[in-house]
Amino acid sequence: MLKIEGIAAFVAVAEAGSISEAARRLRLSKSVISERVADLERSLNATLLHRTTRKLTLTEDGIAFRERAVRISEVEAAASDLAERRGTLTGPLRIAAPVSFGRLHLGPALYPFLAAHPEIELTLDLDDRRVDVASEGYDAIVRHGVIADSRLVVWKLAKSRRLLVASPDYLAGHGTPASLAELNDHRGIFYTNRGAADWRFEGPTGSTVIRARLALRINNGDMIHDAAVAGLGIALLPTFICGPAVRDGRLREIDVGFRPEPEFIYMAHPEGRRPSAKLRAMADHLKKAFGDPPHWDP
Rank of each mutant, 00 (worst) to 15 (best):
E136F: 12
V37R: 04
R25I: 06
I120Q: 03
E15N: 14
R86N: 09
R103T: 00
E136L: 15
A38D: 07
V142K: 07
I63W: 08
D139I: 03
D149Y: 06
S80G: 11
F113Y: 02
G91E: 04
Y138M: 03
D61L: 15
R86E: 06
S73I: 07
V70R: 12
L28A: 12
H50C: 13
E41Q: 07
S31K: 09
A16C: 08
R36K: 12
E60L: 13
P92L: 14
L152G: 01
Y138R: 02
R66L: 15
R24N: 08
A109Y: 01
R103E: 02
D128H: 07
H50I: 06
V37N: 01
L56H: 02
E121M: 09
R24M: 13
S20Y: 14
A115H: 05
A116V: 12
L49Y: 06
S31I: 08
F65D: 00
L26E: 04
P112E: 07
S100E: 12
D128I: 11
H50L: 13
E21D: 11
E76M: 09
L48F: 10
K55P: 05
R24I: 05
S43E: 14
L58N: 02
E74A: 15
L124K: 08
A83N: 03
A77W: 09
R94F: 11
S100N: 04
E67Y: 04
P108S: 03
D81C: 02
T57F: 12
R51M: 06
L56A: 03
A79N: 08
I120V: 14
G17I: 12
L126W: 03
E35D: 05
R68V: 03
D139Q: 09
V75Q: 07
G17M: 09
I95G: 02
A148N: 14
R130Q: 04
D132F: 15
S43C: 09
S135R: 15
A46Y: 00
G102R: 01
D149N: 14
A96S: 14
H144T: 13
S29W: 10
L104V: 01
H117P: 01
L44T: 00
D132L: 12
L124P: 01
L126M: 09
